[in-house]
């Protein structure tokens, strides 16, 4: 005769169902998206060099322009928030794919590749690489805006590309009054091509000569 412990009993079936239920509940209740997968935010301000572990980042300057001069000039629907930054990778060649502006209302804005701007850039250890991001934003997005820069991509709305990875959140330091001034200004900016951070002046002189 078979041993009672080896038979499919109501007790073992119930245990199995309860175990499955508990496992499903654990997976669903676990704060995967809200805690476990959150990126590590590194806060900073303009001019500060941030250590992201895989790179050092400095947002050097924030400007606005209505027009980006280039071989194919670009006109803003709002105004272009022009953000100069330098990246220096620390581990190996790294591509920095994530770039978005988050305004005080929580709306996000993506960069454009128009007017000679970059949507993403690569860099390698040994020297800093300068690049310029341009975000076409409305007037009410200027005051209190931050820029979020990282190697992980921003494109997926769940920010899957930035899971458990360092992300720089740089306060652009734009006050309400400055926002009005920036909006009124009708500047045209000729965006420099990406290059060595320290060789900027050199390249400019050569370009003008």
């Amino acid at each position: 005769m078979s041993h009672s412990g080896r038979r499919v009993t109501w007790r073992s079936t119930t245990l199995l169902v309860v175990a499955f239920g508990a496992a499903c509940a654990l997976v669903n209740v676990m704060p995967q998206g809200t805690i476990l997968e959150q990126p590590f935010l590194v806060d900073g301000h303009v001019g500060e060099t941030l250590d992201l572990d895989y790179a050092e980042l400095t947002v050097t300057e924030v400007r606005t322009a209505d027009t980006l001069a280039s071989s194919q000039p670009a006109v803003a629907a709002g105004t272009f928030l022009v953000i100069d930054a330098t990246w220096e990778a620390t581990e190996g060649e790294t591509y920095f794919a994530g770039a978005e502006v988050v305004d005080s209302q929580g709306r996000t804005h993506w960069p454009t590749s128009r007017g000679g701007c970059t949507e993403g850039t690569g860099s390698q250890p040994g020297y800093a690489w300068r690049t310029t991001y341009c975000f076409d934003v409305p007037r009410d997005a200027l005051a209190g805006a931050t820029v979020r820069l990282a190697r992980g991509t921003h494109v997926h709305d769940d920010q899957a590309g930035q899971r458990r990875d360092a992300v720089a959140v740089v306060d652009l330091g734009i006050t309400r009054q400055e926002a009005d001034e920036l909006w009124e200004a009708t500047d045209e900016i000729d965006v420099d091509a990406p290059g060595f951070a320290s060789a900027t002046t050199n390249a400019d002189e050569e370009g003008e000569g």
Partner: peptide
């Protein structure tokens, strides 16, 4: 293409008239 500058606008950011 954007009518203002004939460049290809690839992203429409919130709150802007294109």
């Amino acid at each position: 293409l954007g009518v203002a500058d004939a460049t290809s606008v690839d992203v429409f950011n919130p709150g802007l008239p294109y």
